[in-house]
Design a protein around this nucleic acid. Structure first.
Lengths: 142, 142
DNA sequence: TATTGTTATACTCTATAACTATA
DNA sequence: TATAGTTATAGAGTATAACAATA
């Protein structure tokens, strides 16, 4: 995936390295997920639910997916006992999703394994360069 | 997607920003592809074929997919006249894949549109910082 | 026999449209 | 009526296994 477009060479080069690194990182995440028979999307579900117990519509919002797609995702995750559906007490229509103990354990394990996969890349940099990279990356998304 | 693991804080922070930026970049690429009714994988196919005319097995290698999956991908891309299959002259079993003129036009257009989507992010950085970021990112993957 | 590519099959992911139940 | 969620359906992406053609 090369991004060439008739602009400043700095701009093209940084876009190019960004895209290449992004594909690499996402491939590592997918690999970690696949090792536990999870898709990248299911990995995202577990990551989101680590810090939240959203309603279905909120989860769909986080994931950027249609509510109907999330129904299927949660069906399959619940079938594996990774997540649980609870009907809301205040709104009889709403369904709140949360991690089961198994789901939380797997989420933690995945976090560690992903760290192990990415660290070989970042380990090429000195701690100071890691800080610099982190600052520059954060300025891209803040 | 947060990567926490009991190591140096620099290491965790850079991994975290890497993952977040990677998701953002991949989402932009998917968005650019979707605007032309392409999946991220089909976008990758077009990008790979810009510089190569691989055999099916080689293309599968580049994509990291099974040959059977690539058969379907190329079926659909060929159905849209974006790519062409040619039987190899030297090996009667092999099939060589290449972009059609339409495919090449679309690949070029996508390159420009992706640049337009990513530049707002990188535009926050000075040319000097862009160079620094590029150097640091390249050290992750070289 | 081994390799290249395709096909058959099955499953996940995703969206759209139609539906149920609740507000 | 409007909203939350599910279901039905369809299509893309993916892998595994079985196959035909060629080496």
């Amino acid at each position: 995936m090369t991004v060439r477009s008739g602009h400043d060479p700095e701009s093209s080069q940084v876009m190019d390295s960004l895209v290449r690194v992004s594909f690499t990182v996402i491939a590592l995440l997918s690999q970690a997920a696949a090792a536990h028979d999870l898709s990248l999307t299911q990995l995202r579900v577990l990551a989101i639910l680590r810090d939240r117990e959203p309603k279905m519509a909120e989860l769909a919002q986080y994931l950027g997916l249609d509510r109907s797609s999330v129904s299927g995702l949660i069906d399959r995750a619940a079938g594996r006992e990774l997540v649980r559906r609870d009907t809301s007490s205040d709104d009889g229509r709403a369904v709140r999703v949360s991690l089961t103990p198994d789901g939380r354990r797997l989420a933690r394990l995945l976090t560690d394994e992903i760290g192990g996969l990415i660290r070989p890349m970042t380990g090429n940099l000195s701690p100071a360069d890691q800080r610099r990279l982190s600052v520059l990356l954060n300025r891209l998304i803040d």
